[in-house]
Design a binder for these strands. Structure first.
Lengths: 116, 116
DNA sequence: TTTGAATACCTTGCAACACAAGGTACTGAA
DNA sequence: TTCAGTACCTTGTGTTGCAAGGTATTCAAA
């Protein structure tokens, strides 16, 4: 692996970090999911996240009252822990939507400046 | 400070973290700046960053060869360390542009999904 | 019936890094 | 000579993403 790839990869990781909670709340706002399916959905939009990141994060969001969960049997293996977003979670999500918009706007205006 | 503000503020911070290196490179691509002026420019677009974050970050980017600097006298106080982006820095910046676009696209498509 | 693959859950330990707080040093004006 | 303003930098702490390792369930094949 050359040095360039390393720097870029590291930064892509950094960028993803910032939006992990946000994107998980977004996914759960659309419907209940279990950890593995959340990871899968994120992968589909090129937001790669490890199991060791996801499980602690879901537990954290649960503790904060933004999520709840229920167990559901599966014929494909062990039972699944389906997470769902709470009312508080939806409130917070609205705030994060705004934060994301603001950040995107900020980056955009710096970008325009750097091309002037 | 209520609990809601806490969660949101924490997340805004998280989001900013991911794009700090990127936005600093963007600013320096538009012209040489010293640390305090970089912080000021970021503040203008609502990306708040502390001194204790910025200085080590600039040093790190210098060590990676993405930046260089020169000293310049000032009549308003101590000399200023003007940072400038290197050729390698511009290369990396192109990669980060792409990474940002990809991330923004990813978030966008999750957002659309969650409104369906 | 036991072995293995697939699925799903979770924890531990390490490393990166943002930031608050505290510190140094230069300039010019009061 | 003292103080405010500007600018540099470091230290210590806390958070947190992730690699690696571990447990448990189901089903199918040997």
């Amino acid at each position: 692996m050359d040095i360039n790839t390393g720097i870029i990869e590291n930064n892509k990781t950094q960028m993803r970090r910032g939006v992990l909670e946000y994107s998980i709340l977004l996914i759960l706002a659309a419907g209940d999911e279990y950890a593995s399916s959340i990871i899968q959905k994120l992968k589909e939009v090129n937001i790669i996240v490890a199991e060791g990141t996801t499980y602690p994060l879901l537990i954290r969001l649960k503790k904060l009252g933004l999520l709840n969960y229920r167990w559901e049997e599966s014929t494909q293996g062990p039972p699944r822990k389906y997470y769902m977003i709470t009312d508080l979670g939806r409130e917070q999500l609205a705030g994060l939507d705004a934060a994301w918009d603001e950040l995107a706007k900020g980056i955009d205006s710096i970008r325009k400046g750097s091309k002037a």
